[in-house]
Amino acid sequence: MSTYGDQARRALLDSAEELFATHGVDGVSNRRIAEHAGNANHSAVNYHFGSREELVRAMVTRYAEDTRRRRAELVGLLGPEPGLRDYLSCLVVPFTDQLASMPVPGWRARFLRQLRTVPSMVDIAARNVVEDPYLDALIERARACVADIPDVVITGRSWLLGKLVVDACADYEARLERERVEPDWTGFALFLVDAIAGMLEAPVTSTGDFLGSRTVSAWP
């Protein structure tokens, strides 16, 4: 049974996610987060999380266990000879399933998109990514499927894909709220997998390191 403190923390996390998604991370004060959560204590964020950085850390990691569990299930369902799209599905579907489990309107994808616009928040998120034992292996297997593509090109495309997944999910999330259409996150995940596979497998006409050497996860 959850305690009052647990309920208050969840309310603050939900409030921050919605406000950050709609107004930007820097456009929302801790006091406004508390008020939107219905908490009369304007210092509730610091009381329950210790600091704004800890609040963001909790927001980034709050669904990590569910995502990791779903990815493990999908890996267990892989056939004897999986291909690129199979590996990509194991990477994408846990995130879209997470979004599908949320009520409409949902704010998760739009929050993550806003988070990426603030360098200090990107650093916080990067430092607090929860380890997923399957993630690195899946990325390496997917890369092996396009081994003929130069590493510098794959690295650049992976950076683009990281933006593509989050931005596309954020736009779809917003459309579900705006147009009140029936959600189809399963179909949307397949659409994303097709697009990602197409980009990874696309012919190479330039091998320049245009985006700079970086280690970037392609997956939210």
Rank of each mutant, 00 (worst) to 15 (best):
T3F: 03
Y4F: 15
Y4Q: 15
Y4V: 13
A8T: 14
R9K: 14
R10T: 13
A11Q: 14
A21I: 00
T22I: 04
D26I: 13
V28P: 04
S29G: 07
R32E: 10
A40N: 15
H42T: 12
H42A: 13
H42D: 09
H42V: 11
S43W: 06
S43I: 12
A44I: 07
N46Y: 04
N46E: 11
N46A: 14
L55Q: 08
V56W: 03
V56R: 01
R57N: 08
R57D: 01
A58T: 10
A58E: 11
V60Q: 00
Y63A: 01
R70V: 04
A72P: 02
E73F: 02
L74Y: 01
V75P: 00
G76S: 10
L77V: 06
G79K: 01
G79Q: 07
G83Q: 06
L84K: 06
L91M: 05
F95C: 03
A100W: 05
M102G: 03
M102I: 10
W107P: 05
A109L: 03
Q114I: 12
Q114T: 14
L115C: 14
L115E: 12
T117G: 11
V118Y: 09
S120D: 11
M121R: 07
V122F: 01
D123P: 04
D123A: 15
V129H: 10
V130F: 03
E131Y: 15
E131L: 13
I139S: 01
R141T: 05
A144R: 09
C145V: 06
A147D: 08
D151W: 08
D151N: 08
V153F: 03
T155M: 12
T155E: 08
T155L: 09
R157V: 01
S158A: 12
W159N: 11
L160Y: 07
L161A: 00
K163S: 12
K163H: 15
K163P: 00
L164I: 06
A168N: 10
A170W: 07
A170C: 13
R175P: 04
E179G: 08
E179F: 12
R180S: 14
R180L: 12
R180G: 11
R180M: 08
E182A: 14
P183V: 06
W185R: 08
A189Q: 03
L190A: 15
F191A: 14
A197D: 05
A197C: 04
G198V: 04
G198C: 04
M199E: 10
E201N: 10
A202L: 07
T207S: 11
D209N: 12
L211R: 04
R214I: 03
S217M: 06
W219N: 06
